[in-house]
Design a protein around this nucleic acid. Sequence first.
RNA 1: CGGAGCGUGGCGCAGUUUGGUAGCGCAUUUGGUUUGGGACCAAAGGGCCGCUGGUUCAAAUCCAGUCGCUCCGACCA
Length: 577
Amino acid sequence: MRFSQCYIPTLKETPAEAEVVSHKLLLRAGMVRKLTSGMYTYLPLGLRVLNKISRIIREEMQAAGYQELLMPMVQPGDLWKESGRWEHYGRELLRFKDRNERDYCLGPTHEEVVTDLVRGEVRSYRQLPVRLFQVQTKFRDEIRPRFGLMRGREFVMKDAYSFDATAQAAEKSYWECHAAYKRIFQRLGLRFRPVEADSGSIGGNFSHEFMVLAEAGEDMIAFCHDCDYAANVERAEVYHQPTGTQSGCCPTAERVATPQAHTVEEVADFLHIPVTTIIKTMIYVVDGQPVAVLVRGDRQVNDVKLKHVCHGQDVQLANAEMVTALTQAPVGFAGPLGLQIPVYADNELKAGTDYVTGANMADSHWLHVDLARDASVTAWADLRMITAEDACPRCGGRLELTRGIEVGHVFMLGRKYSDAMQATFLDEHGQEQTMIMGCYGIGVSRVAAAAIEQNHDEQGIVFPPDMAPFDCVLLNLDPRNAQTLAKAEEIYALLRKMGVDVLLDDREERPGVKFKDADLLGIPLQLIVGCKGLARGVVECKDRRSGVKGALPVDKLEDAFAAWAQEVRDGWTAQQG
RNA sequence: CGGAGCGUGGCGCAGUUUGGUAGCGCAUUUGGUUUGGGACCAAAGGGCCGCUGGUUCAAAUCCAGUCGCUCCGACCA
């Protein structure tokens, strides 16, 4: 392609709306433009990136035995009523009616449609497994779209579905997709980690998320340095050494005044005790019912764990009025003693028998609390957020917490949808059985954003070679000079003949403009044709990632270029680890 | 939805406090000089100041409402 004929509106200044690097650079590099909140137009260059990503995804999914199809984006409400999600999916599902007043929605995902398809066609175990995928625009009416392509309302997603006859076969489909995902993100040149995850509103038995490691990530993941354990913190189990019961130091609890001490820190300061001897009592509302959650003073409640322990759908922190009504005290003085609602206590609290808790009375706390003796605990469970100081729940090794961007998610769905929608088949004994499903997503547009979050510098984007909009940008520094022009055209033709996807910057601009744009666009290989180099019989080259410059002999350009391109690629592989 | 902020030529902003009829940089067009890291000079075009209503002799500026966008919290690829 010739730059002069491309629609690549680069920007010198960053539009005010952009906050995160990927959004800023995508805008500046002329790859996307916002239409309205959470919806973007992919300009030619941005679309090239999406297509490069999709190409790799297609190759690997096909290699894993998945076939591509394309389902409608508009879906009938009836299907969603059948699966039960018309009620449960919530406001992210954009619903509307057609001219005949029939219910429809924009597809946020396609379990219903694909299950409907397969149940209509598949009758026998001999037809299983069925493995399908599509690359398509999804719509989710997100509460808060943000960070450009990172969390849009409309976005491009690859979604895949597997249907199997038995649980073992289903797990095979699952792990084969899991392996395909590893290859995909590897080939895309990303530093990533698959982690154990919660299955959220999609539902199912178990799942893994694929996380791109980046500071701008909205998720926190924990992984072990000594074994291969890795999990989203919202799921990571906390391991507690079984501790023997310590004897309490006092026979009874004692109530003391703690004026104005609302927070754990204030109470600790006032009583001159460590925060670890305080029990934090949090009031939550689970599906409309209030519950109390007890964790050590310095810990955070993990509401995903709470949701599972209570078998609830919806978990929210209670508001101030509710807390006051339940505890007869302002926020900050709640405690388990005498509370008339279910009390869930974190396992860690079993370790002690001499705690400080709120007294359900303004400006008061109990000292010397032994939960077993003084409170009625509905259930003990793992309820707190893991920390970097905790030991690995698998091997006891050292944990590290990092931020990540979720770019892929695989779910073992089990029979959740096939049961609800009667996707059945006859097994080899002529018995009717329910299909076992898996579903697997990759946020294609989010992958592009995540790649930029992970790979950029002050000059702009640094695309991994296989997702860059072009393999190489060829700068003709002096298009008005007949010799340079001829040489640049010759090299351009040569590269194209070699199968290199090359962008020729043939614009009548000053060299500085071309250098700046080349860096901004993040194309991995830069070739510079100018009279200075040509006088020495070379074209200059620059590795966008490392910034290393060199010179390739004009007379042996084909070989020299190939060797250099391989060198740049090796550099990427090395840094990916 | 709760909290914070912002809407002024294509982009980035000033002007709003203290009303007086819109300005700067970039970009664009034309001419000239330039040409290895976002050139310079000269000239030009382009703005119902988000929208509606109100106050006033007079509103970008004050008041009310409304719409849109961004950020912080509950969602997820």
